[in-house]
């Protein structure tokens, strides 16, 4: 039996779908942790920033702060949870030695990456949907109308690209990390600041020229503004630029994830 003959058998889709199913079932088993807490966080952000403080904040012309905030929070929830899902799942596997099962099984690097990515993306999209529905709730009471995405295709596309990119980032971090502290440090010191500085809560128009330049080198700005374009039809960066930078970011994270799985340690902690 060679690799070639195996391709005609069940070793392509079944192992991939089983790992994907494991990833989805894992986060469903801890819904309070994976869905409810992020949903409550977003609800509080919307209440405090969107409704209370937001009345006095001016962003883009003709757009209320609540409208501006909703797509940013959707993307933040989607990216953050996609990252959390793949990184915590892999860390759990390393800690519990389950990683040996994955490595010893006939799963390829691409199968592992895509199964874990799609599992993480699914959680990201579920959280993003919950955040969007919370936003709709506030928007309806504030504006007496529903917030209808202007370009739903772009809205979904950027959520998918951003979520996928962040699941791959989670895989990279988890594979290269030697302890839980490494992952917490990368999440707290790098990813969270980049998300916050990526324009979730503010428009580039509100920033001084120095910070505008700084924000332009933050790839998250393009993911977040792509989603904002999909919902509001306007954004701080042209949608084509946002799309190309986001796709480039996704490609880079994917290649780094492949490298991490090939070079990183499968040894349990």
């Amino acid at each position: 039996m060679t690799d070639k003959s195996i391709k005609t058998q069940e070793l392509i889709w079944t192992p991939f779908l089983m790992l994907l199913s494991r990833e989805v079932r894992r986060f469903i088993k801890v819904l309070a942790q994976t869905i409810f807490i992020p949903a409550i966080n977003s609800f509080i952000y919307l209440l405090i920033f969107g409704v209370s403080i937001g009345k006095n904040i001016k962003v883009l012309e003709g757009i209320s702060y609540l409208e501006f905030l909703i797509p940013g929070l959707v993307m933040m929830g989607c990216m953050n949870n996609s990252f959390q899902n793949s990184s915590s799942s892999l860390l759990g596997m390393k800690f519990g030695r389950e990683i040996i099962d994955i490595k010893a099984a006939p799963l390829t690097v691409q199968q592992i990456i895509w199964a874990m990515s799609l599992g993480g993306l699914f959680r990201g999209l579920v959280v993003g949907t919950v955040v969007f529905l919370s936003g709709e709730f506030f928007y309806y009471f504030h504006e007496n109308a529903w917030l209808v995405p202007v370009y739903p295709f772009y809205f979904l596309l950027f959520c998918i690209i951003g979520g996928l990119a962040f699941t791959k980032l989670g895989i990279i971090v988890a594979f290269l990390a030697k302890t839980f502290d490494h992952v917490s440090a990368i999440g707290g010191f790098i990813i969270l600041p980049l998300i916050y500085l990526g324009g979730v809560f503010f428009s580039l128009e509100n920033l001084s020229p120095f910070w505008v330049k700084f924000s332009h080198v933050n790839p998250l700005l393009y993911f977040i503004n792509g989603v904002r374009y999909g919902v509001l039809g306007v954004s701080d960066v042209p949608v084509n630029v946002a799309l190309w930078v986001s796709l480039l970011g996704l490609l880079v994270f994917h290649l780094l994830a492949v490298w991490a799985l090939k070079k990183g340690s499968y040894q349990p902690w």
Partner: peptide
């Protein structure tokens, strides 16, 4: 493979673990 150290799966029960394992080897 039966590794030397015991493996722990935090979230799943015995039947689920065996179902996953079976799937990893292409047996749906």
């Amino acid at each position: 493979v039966v590794p030397q150290e015991l493996v722990t799966h935090g979230y799943f029960n015995v039947e689920e673990i065996l179902t996953f394992q079976s799937g990893y080897y292409g047996l749906r």
